[in-house]
Simulated scan of single mutants.
Amino acid sequence: MALPSPKIDPEYAAAVAVLKRAVELDSEFRYLQALAFYEKGMDMLLQVLKGTKEDTKRCNLRKKITEYMDRAEHLKRYLDQEKEDGKYHKQIKIEENATGFSYESLFQEYLTETITEVWIEDPYIRNTQQLYNFLRFCEMLIKSPCKVKTIHLLTSLDQDSGRTEQVSALNEIEGSLRTHGVSLEVKYSSSIHDREIRFNNGWIVKIGRGLDYFKRLKGHFSIGYFDFDLRPCRETTVDIFHDKHTQKI
Rank of each mutant, 00 (worst) to 15 (best):
4 P>N: 12
6 P>Q: 00
8 I>K: 14
8 I>G: 10
9 D>K: 06
10 P>T: 10
12 Y>S: 12
12 Y>N: 11
12 Y>L: 15
18 V>W: 02
19 L>F: 07
19 L>V: 05
20 K>E: 02
20 K>P: 00
20 K>A: 11
22 A>K: 06
24 E>V: 13
29 F>K: 13
31 Y>R: 05
32 L>D: 05
33 Q>Y: 14
34 A>R: 00
34 A>Q: 01
35 L>R: 05
35 L>S: 01
35 L>K: 09
37 F>N: 04
38 Y>C: 12
40 K>Q: 09
44 M>Q: 12
44 M>V: 08
54 E>V: 12
54 E>H: 05
57 K>S: 13
59 C>A: 11
61 L>C: 11
63 K>N: 06
65 I>D: 07
65 I>C: 08
67 E>Y: 03
68 Y>V: 13
70 D>T: 11
70 D>P: 01
70 D>Y: 11
73 E>Y: 12
79 L>G: 05
86 G>P: 01
87 K>I: 09
89 H>T: 15
89 H>L: 15
90 K>G: 07
91 Q>N: 01
93 K>Y: 14
94 I>H: 08
94 I>Q: 07
97 N>M: 08
98 A>M: 06
99 T>M: 04
102 S>K: 13
103 Y>G: 01
103 Y>E: 02
106 L>H: 02
107 F>P: 03
108 Q>G: 03
108 Q>L: 11
111 L>K: 01
112 T>V: 06
113 E>H: 10
114 T>I: 11
115 I>T: 03
116 T>Y: 03
118 V>A: 07
121 E>I: 12
122 D>F: 04
123 P>C: 06
128 T>L: 14
131 L>V: 10
131 L>F: 01
132 Y>V: 14
139 E>M: 14
146 C>A: 05
148 V>D: 00
148 V>Q: 07
153 L>Y: 01
153 L>M: 02
158 D>E: 13
160 D>C: 07
161 S>K: 05
162 G>N: 15
162 G>W: 04
163 R>H: 08
164 T>E: 06
164 T>C: 15
165 E>R: 14
165 E>H: 13
166 Q>V: 06
169 A>D: 04
170 L>I: 11
172 E>S: 15
175 G>A: 12
178 R>N: 08
183 S>G: 02
191 S>I: 11
197 I>A: 14
197 I>V: 04
200 N>D: 15
201 N>P: 05
201 N>K: 09
202 G>I: 05
203 W>Q: 00
205 V>Q: 08
205 V>T: 08
205 V>M: 01
206 K>S: 05
207 I>T: 02
208 G>T: 02
208 G>Y: 07
216 R>S: 14
217 L>G: 03
222 S>N: 09
228 F>T: 03
231 R>L: 02
231 R>V: 02
232 P>R: 09
235 E>S: 12
238 V>T: 03
240 I>L: 01
241 F>I: 04
246 T>L: 14
248 K>I: 15
